[in-house]
Design a protein around this nucleic acid. Structure first.
Lengths: 163, 163
DNA sequence: CTTAACCTTGACGTGCACGTAACATTCCAT
DNA sequence: ATGGAATGTTACGTGCACGTCAAGGTTAAG
């Protein structure tokens, strides 16, 4: 019957497992609209396409979407910020790909330094947020202690009233 | 001439240095529009007013605005989320104010428990974000190590090429 | 009393991050 | 080859968090 979805059936050869947009949407929890929007905004590289035009995503794309989602929902970065971040990853991948080839050493060095600089900036931002969160947590825990103190106080009053 | 403010003072709250909206905006770095918007959305209690209708904010209000801003920009909470959070603070203040009065003990206990519950939820959310941030930082630092490795590699190549 | 600076309440506009059709096209199984 | 599900593009709509006038009223200073 109507099975879930017909993927590209390849009994042999490497199971590279390309995914259509619906599958990616389901796995990542975002909508298809969102995936197209991310592509439009440069957060996802234009994926390969089937002959008919259907998008074919890789597992790497799935990971990237999940990363975007974490950055967005948990940390409140804007998509513009996130674009900068994932583009740093692009640089990394690019360097990795051309690492063995004899390109200009100084050029690769420059890219590496830039990637490092960007990453250091990201770490700094994260450290800021970590500090703010720690601070906030400390305050909340102090409040919890206060609540507990008041609750114990109420208990005492109740006992006294009963006596 | 120095005007005498109308008596709006509640039990044992000493009024000090009331600020108009422009002053608050300048001190907190948000716009007047934003302050009115926060009030409209229930994030700020309607402040007292001058006879002519001008808003008069307290230092406490300033602190609250700064807190809202931290929650929003550093941690990416929505104003709806933040409203819930600051309302927990309201409860706390209210309890503090009526603590010595002989209200229903069970009522105060209920409110305390609710406040505690809300606070625990906030701590849980913060713990989530902390974990996500730590994880992300770890990954970034691994990438930094990788970059450094590659850079050292390039250095070696450069030395080898010179020899 | 006049005036500039400051404030008030609407009310419409904006950028972001999508949602939601509408309609055409493509894929797969029968 | 045909029906139906999945996908494509295009375009308008939406909620949030304000921005930005507009048309006044209020206050402090001169």
């Amino acid at each position: 019957m109507t099975h879930k979805k017909a993927a590209v059936a390849e009994p042999e050869s490497h199971a590279d497992a390309y995914l259509q947009i619906g599958e990616v949407a389901e796995r990542t929890g975002v909508t298809q609209r969102t995936l197209r929007y991310y592509e439009e905004k440069g957060l996802l590289k234009p994926p390969s396409r089937l002959d008919g035009g259907f998008r074919l995503y890789s597992e790497e794309d799935v990971l990237r979407v999940e990363k975007i989602k974490r950055l967005q929902t948990l940390l409140g970065f804007t998509l513009a910020d996130i674009k900068d971040m994932v583009q740093a990853d692009e640089v990394k991948s690019q360097i990795k790909a051309t690492y063995r080839k004899d390109a200009e050493v100084s050029e690769r060095r420059g890219k590496l330094l830039k990637a490092k600089e960007v990453t250091l900036g990201q770490v700094a931002v994260i450290d800021q947020k970590l500090a703010a969160l720690q601070d906030m947590k400390t305050h909340l825990e102090q409040k919890l202690d206060q609540y507990d103190g008041w609750l114990r106080n109420l208990e005492e009053q109740a006992v006294a009233a009963r006596a």
